[in-house]
């Protein structure tokens, strides 16, 4: 010990302190994740004393359900991808637009930032319920407004065609504040001199946005795209709180993979199948993240 250099000693101490969060993560993250793989190979009923090993049976069942468009599992996967493909781009584009505007103003910019950020720090359950009421048929805020302007009322959450979009809108709205703040931080990193140089060369604002701002925001964009994709893939709390009895309806039009996991595990007590679903979701998240990192992060 006494032969260690100061540098080595610092490293040892760093490892010792890292041991605490590491132990924590191993116990509550890594081990449960690994045990999910194990559970997915069993016919696992949490109430039972012993669990039967069934090999890949749960995955075979999952594959069969995925190919069957009538199955709720199939619908859950389709819906989850819809949430990602609709929600993520809208959220990023809207947040970037707002961030660009906020970057321009100096007066009251803190106030505006706070206004956009408040939903993000509010409990999702509270937000889900307030929006559920806003969306109510007949007497909900939106329908009262529609009537006021002489427009036809809409069923929103009560319609299998509108419910998914109604929920996506809430998620986009709530997550906006976070994306804006990250974009603003990214925008601050772009050196002012680049814009000045572009101006001298005769570039208009549009050109400097495409040629300077966007390329230099690339890291920020990738970071947000990955993060938001993952959070849309894990959609759960909005759906369970905004649908009747949390069933992901009407007609399974809003249900998600994670909601399926929960129902299979705790209503039908089929932990094995539920774990197979989580493993599948894990795989999907992993692949999408790798692809995004590979194709979106380019060097300029």
């Amino acid at each position: 010990m006494s032969r260690l250099t100061i540098r080595q000693r610092q490293v040892v101490w760093a490892y010792i302190f890292l041991l605490v969060p590491m132990t924590f993560f191993i116990l509550i993250r890594i081990i449960p994740t690994l045990s999910a793989f194990n559970i997915s190979l069993h016919d696992w009923n949490p109430l039972a004393a012993e669990q039967t090993f069934v090999g890949l049976e749960n995955y075979r069942q999952l594959w069969e359900d995925l190919l069957n468009p009538r199955s709720v599992t199939h619908k859950a996967f389709v819906n989850t991808f819809k949430y990602v493909l609709i929600g993520m781009p809208i959220q990023l584009v809207t947040a970037l637009a707002i961030a660009l505007l906020l970057n321009e103003i100096t007066r009251m910019s803190t106030l505006f930032r706070a206004i956009f950020f408040i939903p993000f720090v509010t409990s999702t359950v509270a937000i889900a319920w307030v929006w559920r009421w806003l969306y109510q048929p007949q007497y909900g805020f939106f329908n009262v407004m529609l009537s006021f302007f002489g427009l036809p009322q809409q069923p929103f959450l009560k319609s299998p065609n509108q419910a998914l979009y109604s929920i996506t809108a809430v998620v986009v709205w709530q997550g906006l504040g976070f994306a804006i703040i990250i974009f603003l931080a990214g925008l601050k990193q772009v050196p002012e001199t680049f814009y000045e140089a572009a101006k001298i060369d005769g570039a208009n604002r549009w050109q400097s946005f495409w040629r300077i701002t966007l390329p230099l925001l690339n890291t920020t964009l990738v970071y947000l795209a990955v993060l938001q994709t993952i959070s849309f893939l894990r959609m759960f709390d909005y759906v369970i709180n905004m649908t009747t009895q949390g069933d992901g309806g009407p007609l399974a039009s809003t249900t998600t993979v994670t909601l399926r996991v929960y129902r299979e595990a705790f209503s039908s007590f089929d932990m094995g199948y539920a774990s197979a679903l989580t493993v599948a979701l894990f795989g999907i998240i992993l692949v999408i993240t790798i692809v995004q990192l590979k194709f979106l992060s380019r060097d300029y």
């Binding site: 009407p250 007609l251 209503s267 039908s268």
Partner: peptide
């Protein structure tokens, strides 16, 4: 045998008529 699943089948049948 699975009360919530069996309920959901009737709920979905009812909804698919009135909503779809």
């Amino acid at each position: 045998v699975d009360e919530s699943a069996q309920r959901q089948f009737i709920v979905d049948a009812y909804d698919s008529v009135r909503l779809a």
